[in-house]
Amino acid sequence: MTNRQRTTILVNGTRYEREVEPRLSLADFLRHELHLGGTHVGCEHGICGVCTVLIDGRSARSCLTLAVQADGAEITTVEGLRDAETGQLHPIQQAFIDAHGLQCGFCTPGFLMTTLELLRDNPQPSDDEIREALGGNLCRCTGYQSIVESVRLAASRLRG
C-alpha cells in the first residue's frame, strides 16, 4: 500500500519503529506486526472491550485507535503484565486465576487491562465502582460474578 508512515511506539518497554499503513488499527499492528497475539478483537468497533490496552496509562480500544495515532505513545498490553525479570504473574493475573475470573479466556486480556487502570487509580474500589469500571467490557461466558470477585481479590492483594 502507498503512503506508509514511519511510526514509533513503545510497547511493554520495547521501542518499535515501523512503516505503517495509515488505516492500520493499533490492534492489528500489535497482532500482525509485533505478533503480540494476547490483544484479541471481538467486535472491531469499540463495544466489547476485548481489545483494551493502555495508551500512556489510559485504557483504550485498540480496535478504534489507529497505529499512527499511537506514534510516540507508550502502550501496555497483556503481555506486559507479568514481571519482565522474574516472569512472576502480576497480582491481577493471579487473582483472575484464583477467583476463576475466566472461562474461554477470549475477553480476559481486556478485563485485565481495564482492571490495571482501575486499581492504579482507585486501590480500594467498592463493588459498585468495580462494576462501573468494568461496564465497558463484555464477557459471554462467566456472568461476571467471578470477574468482580477477581478484581476484589486483586485489590486486596495489591494493598498488601
Binding site: 497475539g37 494476547g38 497483556v78 503481555e79 507479568r82 493475573q93 486465576i97 476463576h100 475466566l102 479466556g105
Partner: peptide, 22 residues
C-alpha cells in the same frame, strides 16, 4: 483454576487465528 488459566491471563493462549498469524 481453569487448566488454561495461566495461558489466558498472560495472553499466550493460542486461538486459531493467533496460530495462523504466528
Amino acid at each position: 483454576g481453569h487448566a488454561s488459566a495461566v495461558a489466558h491471563v498472560t495472553g499466550e493462549a493460542l486461538f486459531v487465528h493467533d496460530q495462523a498469524q504466528r
